[in-house]
Every structure is written in C-alpha cells, then in structure tokens.
C-alpha cells in the first residue's frame, strides 16, 4: 500500500517539475498556481504514504514511525522539502527556486524507490533506536536539511545569469538568508536532541563519532555564514559561496558519512 502511494507521489513530483518547465516555455501565471495546487496534493499524498507505511509497520508487529532506516530517511527528506516549500510559499515567488527544490525531492524519492542498493523493507528497530528521541532528532535534522537545500539553490542560482528566470540577486540573498535562519536553529535542535539521546543510549552525549563531528562542522559553517553576514556585512558572492560549502557539508554529513566513514550511525546506511 505505502509503496503504491509513494510511487504515485514520485510521478506527481515529476509532474511538478514538468509544470515548471512548461511555465518557463509559455510564461502563463496560471501554470504556477496550478503547480502549487499539484504540490499541495503531492504533499498530502506523500504524508498519506508515510502514514500508510507507519500503519503497515504495526500490521507487521514491528510498530514504529517511518524514520528509522536509509530508505525511510530519504522519503522523509523529500517530504520535508515539500513541506518547507509550502510553508515558505509566500517568499518563494520565483518558480526557478521551487523547481530546483522539487527536483531535489523528486531525486530523493526516485533514488529511494529505484536504487537496488536501498533496502525498502520495513525493518524492526534495533535496541539503540528504540527511543522517543528518535522522532524529534530525525524530524529536526531533516527539516534543517530541507531548509539548507533552499539556501543552496539560492547560492547556486546566484552565479547563473538567465535573464527573466533568475530572481534579482538581492532576492536570492534574502531567501538564502531566511532559509538559513530556519535551518540553523533546526540543525542546532537536531544536534542537541541527538546528543541527549546519545547520553541515554550510549552513556556519552558527545563521542566524536563521524556523524556527530560532521554535523558540528556543518553547524560551524552555517554559524560562520550568519556571522559573516551580520557582523562582517558580507554580501553577494561570498555569502553565496558559503551557503554552497554549507550544503556540501550537509551532503557529506548525510550521505558521505554513511558510505565512506563508519561509526555509531552505521544503521543509517
């Protein structure tokens, strides 16, 4: 059931992407408002897919929220991205940004559903994961990652010059900054909840495990971003570059650590 719903959701994300392309081809505002409607429906269906998987896990006698393995984290990341888009809709008036963000959601959910290296089965929770901290930790981390994807999109678009498609530089900078303002406290909360959890599960709130260390590196980069902007008055290119570096660090924290480095978080791969 959950796979069928999520399959439909994948197609809908693809459709959202095509609606953007169509908009750039014919430039009719109605397409964009239709795109938003589609995105709302996609988000609702995506939520239904997560709930279905949750229910399914209870039917299997396992019973846990779909936030526990690599596949579930990918699906949840995609969900966070579309949630972030809907929440920030008022600010995201430039379709190129929503296009890139929804493309990221499409990529994540597509990779999760198709890649042979991703195990899609509902698995029971190992003892270390049986904790209520799991939910709040995963939710805050991925909301942060979703905000950072929007920041990255703005940072990346800053260097591209397609007239009439790319929003003005100041707008990009503003959205970039605002998404970091959402992402940074979320990432902080994610690190702290993870730390409290580690204390209760492993007996140490910080053990310099690669995932922990990389999340701290990411946190430091975004802290530098905020200080550079606020106190140093950095603007333009330099800020855009910092947001790109920050997101590269996010990618490494999420994917790189799972595949390249081993550690306490190895169940995530």
């Amino acid at each position: 059931m959950d796979h069928k719903i999520l399959g439909t959701v994948t197609i809908l994300y693809l459709f959202v992407f095509f609606l953007h392309l169509l908009y750039f081809a014919v430039k009719k505002e109605r397409i964009i408002s239709f795109m938003w409607t589609t995105l709302y429906i996609t988000l609702m269906l995506h939520t239904a897919g997560l709930v279905a998987r949750w229910i399914e896990s209870y039917r299997l006698g396992i019973g846990h929220a779909p936030l526990s393995n690599y596949y579930e984290s990918l699906i949840f990341y995609a969900w966070c991205i579309s949630l972030m888009l809907v929440v920030l809709r008022k600010r995201l008036t430039f379709p190129i940004i929503t296009m890139f963000a929804s493309l990221a959601a499409l990529f994540l959910i597509g990779y999760a559903s198709i890649s042979p290296s991703v195990d899609r089965k509902i698995q029971p929770l190992i003892p270390a994961l049986q904790s209520n901290w799991l939910h709040i930790h995963v939710i805050t981390c991925f909301l942060a990652y979703a905000a950072f994807i929007i920041s990255f999109t703005c940072g990346f678009l800053y260097f591209i010059n397609w007239r009439h498609i790319i929003p003005p530089k100041e707008t990009l900078e503003d959205i970039n900054y605002r998404s970091v303002v959402v992402g940074f406290p979320m990432l902080s909360a994610g690190i702290l909840t993870g730390s409290v959890w580690a204390h209760y599960a492993w007996g140490s709130y910080w053990s310099w495990d690669p995932k922990e260390t990389w999340s701290l590196i990411t946190w430091i980069i975004y802290a530098l971003f905020l200080h550079a902007r606020f106190t140093r008055g950095w603007r333009g290119k330099r800020i855009a570059i910092l947001s790109i570096i920050g997101f590269l660090s996010v990618i490494f924290t999420y994917f790189g650590v799972n595949f390249i480095l081993s550690g306490l978080h190895s169940y995530a791969s």
């Binding site: 690669p210 701290l216 430091i220 980069i221 530098l224 200080h227 140093r232």
Partner: peptide, 16 residues
C-alpha cells in the same frame, strides 16, 4: 573567532 571556528571545523575533518 572566525579563524578559530574554521580551524576547529577543518581539524575535525581529519578526525573523521
């Protein structure tokens, strides 16, 4: 502060 934070972040990479 910026130098030290960058240094700590960069040094941590080696630790991973």
């Amino acid at each position: 502060a910026i130098f030290l934070l960058s240094f700590i972040a960069f040094g941590s990479i080696f630790g991973t």
